[in-house]
Amino acid sequence: MEIDLTHKIEPVQELPGHQDRAWHVAWNPAKPLIASCSADKSVRMYTYNSPTGGSAAPTFSHLTTIPTGHTKTVRAVAWAPSGNTLATASFDANIGVWEQEEAEEEEGRKGDWECASLLEGHETECKCVAYSSSGTLLASCSRDKTVWIWEVHPDSDFECMSVLMEHSQDVKCVAWHPTEEILASASYDDTIKMYIDDPSDDWFCFLTLTGHTSTVWSLAWSPKGSYLASASDDKTIRVWRRVAEHKWECALVLEGNERSVYSVSWGVGPGLGWVAAVGGDGVIRVWVLSENEDSTLNHKLIAQMPNAHGVHDANSVAWCPRLGFENLLATTGDDGATRIWRVVEALRE
């Protein structure tokens, strides 16, 4: 069925190079950098320029490849808000923290990315890692069913503040609220949990969101933080609305995916912004979400791209967070590639 869509997803560039499945991609929030990670245990970084022409897309070029030293798949990458530090989550049960060495004056080039710290403690595969909006906290999660919260100290020193054992199964994803110190986690136990710090005690789970009927793979907060989107093996995306300070409720279920939804990203845009999702059916879908006057949610599919990674699954999707590049999307797939796309208005006849 042909749907009349208002926008289209244009390919900008393919960034091949991983020798195995590319799991995840993350845009640096402060600099023109993008990092992807893979079952080949490496992280690849690309830089991009600012196009001079009005309608031109940026051009991406390979900057460096970090072999990482992780002994198993690198499952996820996350940038600190400063853009100076990258964290990696690996199936080898460790979290790596990477920083760029000081530039060497003689050679006139930036230094290599070096492992500044290795966070050990999880018992089994780490699935995800995330920095809080202030950059002072790092969260990690694992198949060992736990979520760890680490405090970031100067000189790449980390202190474990809390080990949260609320989920009954693997924890697949952690995501911090864009402005507040609220952490959300998603699990193989089909639930989403949220945590805050009790200043006189420990971090604790204040809310469990149920509704998905299978594994919850991915979470994305809306840019202003009043909504949370979750992507699931049940082929749906749920959108949860904040109805009180510590209360969220399901406001919308987005359907249309034909297989598991592995990743969701919420970018800025008209209304509440653009929600992009990818998964096992290999299709990129973009919806625009808006609030009606009676505060119910309105959603509209505005663009889709089938076979985004050929015949392969797409594993992650991410909107570029930088000003002037907000219509750029990155995806990774089982073909080992990272692909850059941009969402533009469809031309009308």
Binding site: R21, A39, K72, T73, R75, F91, E125, K127, R143, D170, K172, Y188, S214, T215, D233, S260, G280, D313
Partner: peptide, 15 residues
């Protein structure tokens, strides 16, 4: 069934 069709668990098992 859930375990057999979770690609992440399968990938980790094969490591």
């Amino acid at each position: 069934n859930k375990q057999l069709n979770d690609k992440e668990r399968v990938a980790a098992a094969l490591e």
